[in-house]
Design a protein around this nucleic acid. Structure first.
Length: 240
DNA sequence: AACCAGGACGTGA
DNA sequence: TCACGTCATGGT
């Protein structure tokens, strides 16, 4: 079974640099908007509106594929509603619900976007505390950590469902969100804070990629580069 | 055509 | 604490 460092290296070697968080960019000729990954750019945005956008994206993608969330995000952008005041405007709630329909749960998410918007404004540029974020209705541990890591550059591991599934298969056990997060924080504690953030930027993205491509619900252990170093893979290989 | 997707919340044991 | 139902659209 690989150490955490070996796992990071193996994932990085196989999938390459991911460049999260994907931010909106206007395509050439100003035709439309799309979200773009920026491999090698490990700086959290300095633009307040981009920080806000990351929170919006994190809410929109809750239990939903990024493709649906991305369409919702670009819809908001095109409609000029991707800023706090617009998402708090009660006269526009119906319009917002329509714009974000592709992300699913659009009633809940419209409300959550409004709550995030008013919280964000009240921050007045300050970095939120994790406990403050968790106190907001609609922001749980993963959304909070995604915002703190990718929008504010704080060194936190996002222990999402993919990461918990993958680690559970690699070394066994069932992992709680905070249990895995704490373990990862411990594993990389010796790194400087900035370097730790960069590692967590990539590591979370790499887990997502691995969970989508090979370590799916029905895993493709036969072609996995971790085969032989994975507890789950060994069980499968013995069986067939 | 079921299944799953870059979760969170409310409820009841 | 933990298991379970709910929320909803869309790609495979």
């Amino acid at each position: 079974m690989p150490t955490v460092d070996e796992l990071y290296d193996a994932l990085f070697s196989f999938y390459g640099m991911q460049g999260w968080w994907p931010l909106l960019e206007q395509s050439a000729e100003g035709a439309g908007w799309d979200t773009v990954y920026r491999p090698g750019d490990y700086l959290a945005p300095s633009e307040e509106l981009q920080r806000f956008e990351i929170g919006v994206g994190a809410i929109l993608t809750q239990n939903t594929s990024w493709s649906g969330a991305r369409r919702a995000l670009t819809n908001l952008r095109r409609a000029g509603r991707l800023h706090p005041e617009a998402l708090m405007d009660s006269a526009a709630y119906d319009e917002v619900r329509l714009l974000i329909r592709s992300s699913g749960y659009f009633n809940q998410k419209q409300e959550r976007l409004g709550v995030w918007a008013s919280f964000f404004l009240q921050l007045e540029g300050k970095t939120p505390e994790r406990s403050e974020l968790l106190a907001i209705k609609g922001i749980g541990p993963e959304t909070a950590d995604s915002i703190l890591l990718y929008a504010y550059g704080r060194p936190l591991f996002v222990a999402d469902a993919y990461a918990r599934r993958i680690v559970g298969r690699l070394i066994g056990g069932s992992w709680s969100y905070q249990g895995l997060a704490d373990t990862m924080h411990e594993a990389f504690r010796s790194l400087e804070e900035e370097e730790r953030s960069r590692v967590f930027f990539e590591l979370h993205a790499l887990f997502v990629e691995h969970g989508k491509q090979l370590c799916r619900v029905q895993p493709l252990c036969g072609v996995c580069f971790l085969h032989g170093r994975c507890l789950f893979g060994r069980c499968i290989s013995i069986m067939d």
